[in-house]
């Protein structure tokens, strides 16, 4: 009983911020200014705590979606950058992880070490070398400056390798005996059996790049290329209601994906935690 109470309290604490954000996004402009003004708009007084709005309204959303073209640009920038990175990772990271999981080629250990190192280093360290290359090939301040380094992130390789290693050897050996080539084995056995891992790196990747701040901040200068995550803090604080609504619109795709892909996400995370 005690255990159950503790766990429930923790659960409420975890979900609380999200709950507040969602319910409060239906606040009207005036109500938001009245209640959150002291924090968001710098008016006098103290912010009030509201669990449910008194006069719920969708006004802020309408205003955001219809009257702010910059929001649309930022939204599509985010979609484009995230989408391209994920597509690239599918092509690059999936076979890469397969190579590490299944083959013992020369230099494998050293390369794996470098990949792990690359995964651990904070972006700010690798940013220096990225900056040299991107400016050498004149890609700074374009979408590709964010996309290309993102594609070659080594974190998905690390997570997927575990999933691929968990595929029983016997299945692969049986396929080999039946005369399947290496590529066929990868495409027809590896990918279907590693499905949960692949979905999971896609979801994790989406959450990561939808939320990207460091990369666009350093590699982009032009306003019209900025993704949502950097546009949001810039929304003028004079309209707190709109900025509030914008933060919810940003949250929605991530939440939807989370709910639909949750099972795979869990399986994928779990797979990286099990012994090889």
């Amino acid at each position: 009983m005690l255990v159950r109470t503790v766990v429930t309290v923790l659960l409420v604490l975890m979900v609380f911020p999200l709950f507040v954000l969602v319910t409060d996004s239906f606040l009207g402009s005036r109500e938001i200014l009245e209640r959150f003004g002291p924090v968001l708009a710098g008016t006098e007084g103290q912010a009030e705590f509201v669990l449910f709005p008194q006069y719920p309204t969708l006004r802020a959303y309408v205003q955001l979606l219809l009257d702010s073209p910059e929001f649309f640009t930022a939204f599509w920038n985010s979609v484009f950058q995230t989408g391209m990175i994920l597509a690239g990772q599918l092509i690059v990271a999936v076979p890469g992880a397969w190579a590490f999981a299944r083959y013992r080629f020369p230099g494998r250990r050293a390369m794996w070490f470098l990949y792990m190192l690359l995964m651990i280093l904070p972006f700010q360290v690798t940013m220096v070398s990225g900056y040299f290359v991107l400016s050498a090939v004149h890609l700074m301040d374009t979408h590709w400056a964010v996309i290309l380094p993102g594609i070659f992130s080594t974190l998905p390789v690390f997570i997927l390798k575990k999933t691929f290693s968990a595929i029983p050897r016997e299945i692969l050996e049986a396929a080999e005996v039946d005369g399947a080539g290496e590529l066929r084995i990868f495409l027809l056995i590896g990918i279907p059996l590693g499905r949960s891992g692949i979905f999971s790196i896609m979801i994790l990747g989406f959450l990561e790049y939808w939320n990207a701040i460091e990369q666009p901040m350093t590699f982009l200068r032009t306003e019209s290329l900025m993704p949502l995550s950097l546009y949001l803090p810039d929304i003028s604080t004079s309209d707190a209601a709109v900025s509030f609504a914008a933060s919810i619109v940003m949250l929605l795709p991530a939440l939807l994906l989370f709910f639909f892909g949750q099972e795979y996400l869990e399986q994928g995370i779990a797979a990286s935690g099990i012994k090889e």
């Binding site: 659960l11 999200l18 959450l207």
Partner: peptide, 27 residues
């Protein structure tokens, strides 16, 4: 799922909550 949900909250959204909570004039 309850425990995993915070992962899905983008920093830009979460920050609004943290400001409301811990601002000088916050909750």
């Amino acid at each position: 799922s309850g425990f995993l949900i915070p992962m899905a909250v983008p920093a830009a959204s979460a920050v609004v909550f943290f400001r409301l909570m811990f601002d000088k004039n916050g909750w």
